[in-house]
Amino acid sequence: MNAVGPRRQSAGRLHRTSLRKTGLDYAVTWSVIGLFLIFALIALHLASFILIPLTLAVVTGLILGLAADKLGTLGMPPMLNALLLTSAFAVIALMVGSAVMEPVQNLLGDAPDMIDGALDYIMPRVEHVSWLHRPLQALIHGPISSETMLENTGTIISTLATGVTPALLQILIFLGSLVLFLANRLAIRRALIIGFQDRERRLIAIRAYNAVERALGFYFATALVLYAAFGTVAAIIAMLGGLGSPVLWGLSAFLLSFIPFLGIALVTLAMSISGLLVHDGVLLGLLPAAAFFLVNGIFENLVLPAVMGRRLQMNAFMLFVAIVFWTWLWGGVGAMLAVPLSLIVVTLASELLPKGKAKPSLPQ
């Protein structure tokens, strides 16, 4: 009997020793996680043709979820509800596209003259910089000159036509996915909730799903109104600054405002270049871009936080990283999806993570 106790203690120590992980075990674990993430990124990139319209349809369906609920309370069948919302979304997109098309066509028609004017403006100012002579000469006589653009118009059009067919397929996938998601969103929601076994987890899932729909719907409904007002201000700045095509500037500012940081930077840069080409003086040329940047700073730092509130505020650095990541992975559509995907992650984290306050360990 006395020998049994030591043997049990020895066996317990051996069991604990066998369960103790070494540095090599941790290295293997993190290596497996790293390989999984790498293969996941590869899969997301390779399947981007399908995943981009599907993800965009799901996000759009979640944004339109509140509107679908409102129409559902009126007794409208789910499929008719989905067709109505999808048709309204497509009509609005076509209206925006048609509004942009005419100024873009005018801009493309004036592109050779604009390039020549830009080169005439730049060349006298950089003649003293010796290392810029060769790149600028290549730009003038190379493939981006106005004469070469006119000569290669057929090649450019054929290249654009080659990309039209995949884009049309993706649009059809998006519209079909959006209709089916809106028509079956309640069934999808029910299946996700039933997937959890106990009642407490089902309640958490219900709260999280509803919170995501509310956050997306409120954010984009509010942003739609605010960014429309901001686009109107940008159009007025472009008109007063003599940049031309105020409708194009306003729509560009409105659409690109949904891509924080990068979108506004592109509009500001474009206004700077256009102002320098239109006006002779540097200060006068940069004045429209400076006014636009100032209005954007007031809008982003005062108006938007006051309307949105702290509940929907996201970390600026993490949002910038998300925009860069999704732009690198999925291009322009990924940049547009970065904000809603980040908002979904933030909302789920606020709903699922423990609410208890952390108690810091203060030094004695």
Rank of each mutant, 00 (worst) to 15 (best):
A88V: 09
T159H: 12
Y219N: 09
I188N: 08
R190E: 14
T55N: 01
G275K: 01
I344Q: 07
A68R: 03
M95F: 13
L71C: 04
L343Q: 03
G142S: 06
L107P: 10
I194M: 13
T148V: 03
A118T: 13
N81G: 00
L62W: 07
A289C: 05
A67G: 03
L192D: 01
M271I: 02
P77Y: 09
L94Y: 12
K21Q: 15
R13V: 04
T347Y: 00
L262G: 04
F299E: 11
I298V: 15
R199A: 07
I92H: 00
G275Y: 00
R189L: 09
G61H: 04
F196R: 09
T268Q: 03
G163F: 04
L283P: 00
N210A: 13
V126A: 09
A82W: 00
L284R: 12
L175Y: 05
T22D: 01
F320E: 10
P340G: 11
L348S: 00
P360V: 01
L168E: 03
L80F: 08
L348F: 01
L352Q: 05
T55M: 07
R16P: 05
F320Y: 14
R125V: 05
R311G: 14
M1R: 10
Q364M: 01
D110N: 15
R311P: 07
I157C: 00
L226P: 02
P166I: 01
L312G: 04
N210F: 07
L178E: 02
L286H: 08
F258L: 00
A138N: 14
F174S: 02
L175N: 03
M95T: 13
L294V: 10
A187W: 12
P112C: 00
P340D: 08
A27C: 08
G285L: 03
A40N: 08
S98Y: 14
A111E: 15
L304N: 03
A234L: 03
V333I: 13
N301A: 14
L341I: 12
L66I: 10
P103Q: 04
G195P: 03
L83F: 10
L269E: 02
P360W: 03
F292K: 08
